[in-house]
Every structure is written in structure tokens, then in C-alpha cells.
Simulated scan of single mutants.
Amino acid sequence: MGDGIHGEDPVWMTTAMLKAYTHPLRRKILRLLARRHHMRAADIAAELEVAANSVSFHLRTLADAGLIVEAPEHARDRRDRVWAPVKGAMSVGDPDHPVADEELGDAVVRAVAAEHQDLLQRVIAWSPEYYGGRASGIHAVFQQRTTRLTEAEFTAVMEIFDKAVAEAEAAHDDDDPEGRFWQIDLVAADDTI
């Protein structure tokens, strides 16, 4: 989610989506739902160690904003409320789809960047285990590449990347015990930034 994340037919975030996404607990809830596909409020509260009534409030806010939906097919009974994330890529905006509230758009981009910085710090902390020979297997990648491309060529590379990730997700067996969740933060900037 956030500026620069594009998949096939991205959803342009509304003001309500942006406002909902700026809250850190709501972002945690969305990441957890993305990993589990669907969950009950009580299970989310237990997993995140947050009061159930607080989680319920934030779930309603996320649902009202259109970021999650109810998933009654996974409920145990008619009173059980189960939630699932809305599928698909979301984007803050672009020149053809400008954001209605630039301050909210900036808040979302800053929140995504702060989470990226946190991920980068975790990768840096783990890296000596890997290159020092103490880690078994790959748990993170810190890679850098510089290349010269036109804007159209760069956009094509991003589309190939998005397609490759989508194909890998579709081919993955959720029952495979070797499966792990990977957070992929891709940062790219041209020489004008």
C-alpha cells in the first residue's frame, strides 16, 4: 500500500482510505489480515495484544473506508464476524489521479516510509548473521543496483516484478510448512531525486 505500489488496475485511495491507513494499529491489522487471509476481532486482538473493543473499533473504521470486508463464509455461526482484506494494489495517487487531500497523502507516504525504515533496520541487524556464516538460509536480502532506463522501461520492469510476485503467490501452497511471510520493500529513485 502507499505511493508507488502499483499492480494490475490499482485502486486509487479515497480520503477515507487514507485517513484510516494513517493509524499505526490499523496498518498492523491490515498486515495481519493479509497474512492470515481472514480473522475474527478477538483473534486479531489476541495476536496483537490489544484490547478487543479497540480492535473492533478499528475494524469498523477499516470496513467503512473500504479496506476490509466481512467474510461470513469463514464464520462459525451467524453471530461470528470474520474480516478479510480487500484484494488488489492500492495507490495514493499520481498525476492522472491526484489525491484529494495532500496532507493525508503525505501522512500515508511517511508512514509507509517509516515502516520501510524499520524493515531496513531489521535487515541490517540480521545481515552479520548471514555474511558471518551463522545464519541457516536466507531470511532477508539487501541488494542495490543502478541501471539506466527510460520512464517507460522502468514502468515495464515494475509491471514484470508485480506479475512475477502475483504468479509466485498464486503458485504457492498455503499448507507448505516451509512457507514464510516476506515483506518486500522495493525502493527505486532516479538521478533527479
Rank of each mutant, 00 (worst) to 15 (best):
V109F: 08
G137C: 06
A114P: 02
R134A: 15
P95V: 00
A113W: 00
Q117P: 00
A107E: 03
V112L: 01
Q144K: 07
H97M: 00
A89R: 03
D106F: 07
S127T: 14
V141H: 07
T146S: 10
A107K: 02
R81P: 00
G105Q: 07
R134V: 09
T147V: 10
W126V: 06
G105W: 01
V108R: 01
P85Q: 12
D106R: 14
R145D: 06
Q117M: 13
E102Q: 06
G88P: 00
I138M: 09
E115I: 10
L104A: 06
H139R: 15
E102I: 09
D106T: 14
L149F: 04
S136K: 08
R122A: 14
Y130S: 13
E115R: 12
Y131N: 09
S91M: 05
G133A: 00
E129M: 12
Q144V: 07
T146H: 04
D94A: 12
G93I: 07
D118E: 15
R134M: 15
A107H: 00
V123R: 04
M90E: 04
D101H: 03
S91N: 11
D118P: 02
D80L: 13
R122I: 11
Q143S: 13
Q143R: 10
R145C: 10
A89S: 15
P98K: 06
D101L: 06
A111D: 05
H97F: 10
Q117I: 11
D118Y: 09
T147I: 14
R148M: 15
V99H: 01
A100S: 07
A125G: 11
D94G: 15
R122W: 11
R148L: 15
S127G: 09
M90C: 11
L120I: 05
P95E: 07
E103P: 01
V82H: 02
V141W: 04
M90G: 08
Q117E: 13
A111Q: 03
Q144S: 09
H116S: 15
D106N: 11
A107L: 06
A140C: 14
E129G: 02
A84I: 05
F142N: 09
A89H: 03
R122F: 12
P95Q: 05
V123W: 03
A113K: 03
P128V: 09
A135R: 02
G93F: 03
W126H: 15
I138Y: 02
V109K: 13
A113G: 01
V86S: 05
A140Q: 07
G93P: 02
A135I: 06
Q121P: 01
D106G: 07
A84C: 05
I138R: 04
L149Q: 04
R110N: 14
V82T: 05
V99M: 06
R148E: 11
A107D: 01
L149N: 00
H97S: 07
V109N: 11
Y131K: 04
V109C: 08
G133I: 06
A125T: 14
D118T: 13
D80H: 08
H139V: 06
E129Y: 04
Q143T: 12
H97A: 10
